[in-house]
């Protein structure tokens, strides 16, 4: 037997179980109902993305039914706990905030999940974290915030312990920014406070400030993570040492992985593979892209494998960085 024939035979032999596996996974999902958990109340960004993903995944699994279940509470923790504790049969998946990385690293009470062990199915978008300042602040570059001889500018953030607050604290610690952080601005109150001139800026997800900047009310002066071709200066270039860069990586991970979909640990490999491939098919669907555009919901998908890797890296922080993270949060207390 020639070597070529041997190779072909080996290839065929090897691919048989794979094909069988895909078949059996498809067989499994036939007639089944999949619950897609959204960790917020109906309405809002996570709900919009969750429903979009579920609807178009369902398009490629016509024999199954995907239903949405909103499980809000404790800033996505209740939803994530629910997904983590679900039976790993591939019939419960869902979405939550990437900022839960921080809560896990900080070992917050109430966290009953381990993100490193979850079955990652994919992510739908990137949501670059930016430092945006109002036009009335007069600030144009990050350098102006590094000069400690000037009076500090006021940045707002959501409540202490929120992902937005921790991002800002980490950036302040890493870059020694000369700013005063004022927490407690929820939802749209922060934008109002910038318009009023009461605060001068914030660190937050770019999508929340697109309109503010488009209306000519503010500018982005720095970003962490985000697309390679962006014209906004990267936070990393202002970092003076490796530790600072490592801290900024945590923010970048949040930027790169947003609107994720995951299931509990231990979903059978064939079912997970099927869910992952269907997720990517749904993300490429022209109709989904058209709908997303209409809803102002940018799409930048990545595979479950990629998400798994980014999350694992973000969770691997040195004890020194963990201490910095704890300090960053405790500084507000």
């Amino acid at each position: 037997m020639s070597r070529i024939a041997m190779t072909i035979a080996a290839f065929l032999f090897a691919s048989v179980p794979l094909a069988q596996a895909a078949d059996s996974a498809e067989e499994f999902y036939k007639g089944k109902t999949i619950t897609y958990v959204v960790s917020t109340a109906p309405g809002g960004g996570y709900d919009t993305y969750g429903r979009l993903v579920a609807r178009y995944m369902n398009k490629y699994m016509p024999d199954s039914k995907i239903i949405i279940r909103n499980i809000p509470g404790a800033g996505h923790v209740v939803g994530a706990n629910t997904i983590y504790a679900a039976k790993p049969d591939g019939l419960t998946i869902g979405t939550f905030n990437t900022g839960l990385i921080y809560l896990q690293l900080l070992k917050e009470s109430g966290v009953r999940f381990d993100l490193a062990k979850m079955s990652w199915i994919g992510k739908a978008a990137s949501d670059t974290r930016v430092l945006v300042v109002s036009k009335s602040s007069g600030v144009k570059t990050v350098q102006e915030l590094l000069d400690s001889s000037k009076p500090p500018i006021k940045l707002f953030a959501a409540g202490v312990g929120s992902a937005g607050y921790i991002d800002t604290r980490l950036a302040i610690s890493a870059l020694h920014l000369n700013v005063q952080l004022i927490p407690g601005y929820n939802g749209s109150e922060g934008t109002m406070s910038m318009l009023r001139g009461e605060t001068q800026g914030t660190i937050g997800s770019q999508s929340s400030y697109t309109q503010f900047v488009d209306d000519g009310n503010g500018v982005y002066i720095m970003e962490a993570g985000g697309p390679a071709d962006s014209k906004i200066p990267q936070a990393g270039q202002f970092a003076k040492d490796d530790n600072a860069r490592q801290l900024l990586k945590m923010i970048a991970a949040e930027s790169d992985v947003a609107r994720l979909t995951a299931g509990p640990p231990g979903i059978p490999a064939d079912r997970l593979a099927l869910l992952r491939s269907i997720f990517m098919k749904a993300m490429a669907d022209p109709q989904l892209l058209a709908d997303a555009k209409k809803m102002d919901a940018p799409i930048a998908p990545a595979t479950g494998e990629h998400v798994q890797q980014v999350i694992a890296e973000a969770l691997q922080q040195t004890p020194q960085n963990l201490q910095l993270l704890t300090q960053a949060v405790k500084a507000g207390q």
Partner: peptide, 20 residues
Amino acid sequence: GLDPQTGVQRYTFNQLFLWD
């Protein structure tokens, strides 16, 4: 719920449903 200024849990008795 969570203290808006310090993030400390107030009267939550370790119950997640009281966080909000």
